[in-house]
Amino acid sequence: MSHFTKTFSRIFLILMAVVLLPAPLLAMEPAEIIKKSQAAFYEAGQDFQARVKMTLTTREGQQRLREFTMLRKNDMAGEQKYFIYFHSPGDVAGTTFMVYKYPNRDSDRWLFIPAINLVNRIAARDSRSSFVGSDFTYEDVSGRPLEADTHKLIKEEAVNGRLAYVVESVPKSAAEYTRKLAWIDQVTFLPLKEEYYDIQGVLYKVFTAGEVKEIQSLSTIMKRTMENVKSGHKTDVVFERVQYNVGIGDDLFSERYLRRPPEKWIK
């Protein structure tokens, strides 16, 4: 064998190795996976509209229902605006809630209470607070800054036949959890499953994605569950009438429409 062919076959072998190695593991940084996952999960489309049904179930089986319309619009520089109109239960029907979410500072939150026609700001420091009494926190509903955690790719694993990256996220400062494992679909980048561990390293909360549907060619989780495995309390969420890029105007996210939510959007 000539010197030339030797060198050539060595190069060939290296090339083959590069090609045959699990490509995604090489191609993607864990933080990149989480970033893409957040984009698919919290930021899909220019805007978003859905009717959301939340069922809260206690260990004893008692159920409560929260039904609301959720509108989201992505703004420039990672800012987002949310508008939520509650249909039920009766004591909050007609209440509207608005959030301006910023990448690097506390959100602005407003609540409109129809019984006294009052628009009020709400203190919003703690994103770990439960969202409307469910097992989802504000952070679970609208996302957590990418830089708040250190991300590590642990392995790849299939969940219900879908190949997923398993990424471990450890908060840099005190958070709701001390460790989170997320199974992220390698094709859609939606989270298929998440496990939250507390300060003792014990699993306490599990997120599971149910039905996933293509809506306007954007993969959307239509059913999801967050279960507190310690307390036995769980929250099932069903999205209905999901639409993207419906052309929600910036003016919707204002005091005017907080007080008088337009019929067109909240149905």
């Binding site: 500072r105 506390d106 602005d108 700001r121 709400i122 203190a123 919003a124 420091r125």
Partner: peptide, 11 residues
């Protein structure tokens, strides 16, 4: 006037 300041809502 009312807004976010000092880690809370100030009015």
């Amino acid at each position: 006037t009312q807004g976010n300041a000092l880690g809370g809502v100030t009015g």
